[in-house]
């Protein structure tokens, strides 16, 4: 299954389907603007997806089951916010790499198990504090699920105390429990209206406001925005974010990276080291 996020993902899935078709294949059409017409269309797309899943897998997806699943995800988001509170506090209890690992874990395992695991982990971390970092940074930008990369960057002594990443705060922060009623329409509204992704248009103010709020909450010394080579949506938007954050007195480092490439790490660490010197945190 794929959904319309960016040109690259569409192309990747299309090639996959062309070379090695899968028994079930569905393309979820996601609007990139948020108006009532688009919401109606997206809600209808979810109805079509549900019907296709039910037919192909010979299952019934009941409204009650959808509501229960939605409630579990709401609990996951609540716990992740607690994790971010630990990370963002004066003496952080979690590193940026550890937090990313948690978010990734949550996206790959059943919610009930993740909730139990996360509750236990948070309880254990509540009273732990990491050493004061050289600098408190925000990391934002494109699809970045490279935990090892964050770990290496943080080895320079800075901590990513908050983020604006696809596999991070942007994936859950602004999603609040949907209102009662038709669960599919509620889901459509929840996800379409709260997508803090630069693929969405007419919504930049929400994205920059989200980042500025995180910056204030986490009391950052600077921000690092990354984008994977050839990612237009983040590569272009990051320049705008730099302008607006620097106007607010927040120093910004822009990094272009090769996705998942170990060979790139040394260069990125050098750039971050120079940035830390630049902002007076050598």
């Amino acid at each position: 299954m794929l959904f319309r996020s960016c040109d690259h993902l569409r192309g990747a899935f299309e090639n996959w389907q062309y070379v090695k078709p899968t028994p079930f294949f569905h393309y979820l059409k996601v609007p990139h603007i948020v108006i009532d017409d688009a919401l109606d269309y997206f809600a209808d797309q979810l109805v079509q997806l549900k019907a296709k899943l039910e037919i192909h897998f010979a299952v019934t997806i009941a409204d009650d089951a959808l509501r229960a699943a939605t409630a579990r995800q709401a609990r996951v988001r609540e716990l992740l916010r607690r994790a971010y509170a630990l990370r963002e506090r004066e003496r952080p209890g979690l590193t940026g790499a550890q937090t990313m690992a948690l978010v990734l874990l949550g996206s790959t395992m059943p919610a009930e198990q993740f909730i139990a695991l996360l509750e236990k982990e948070l309880a254990a971390r509540e009273n732990e504090s990491l050493p004061a970092p050289r600098a408190r940074l925000l990391i934002g930008g494109a699809a970045t699920d490279e935990v090892e990369l964050l770990r290496e960057l943080e080895s320079l002594g800075a901590l990513f105390v908050t983020d604006s990443l696809c596999y991070g705060a942007r994936a859950f922060w602004s999603l609040t429990a949907p209102a009662d009623g038709d669960p599919l329409r509620a889901l459509a509204k929840l996800y379409l209206s709260n997508t803090l992704c630069p693929r969405m248009f007419e919504d930049y103010p929400s994205r920059s406001a989200f980042i500025l709020a995180a910056a204030e909450r986490a009391r950052i010394d600077g921000a690092v925005f990354v984008h994977n080579k050839f990612c237009d949506v983040h590569g272009i938007e990051n320049v705008l974010l730099r302008k607006h954050l620097e106007e607010q007195g927040i120093p910004v480092l822009l990094l272009e990276k090769e996705y998942g490439a170990h060979a790139d790490r040394g260069r990125l660490k050098t750039r971050l080291q120079a940035f830390l010197e630049r902002i007076g945190r050598p």
């Binding site: 990139h32 248009f201 237009d232 272009i236 938007e237």
Partner: peptide, 14 residues
């Protein structure tokens, strides 16, 4: 651009 080309859509927005 939205729907046809990310690069086109984003540079205009920028």
């Amino acid at each position: 651009g939205p729907g046809g080309c990310d690069a086109n859509a984003k540079i205009h927005e920028f």
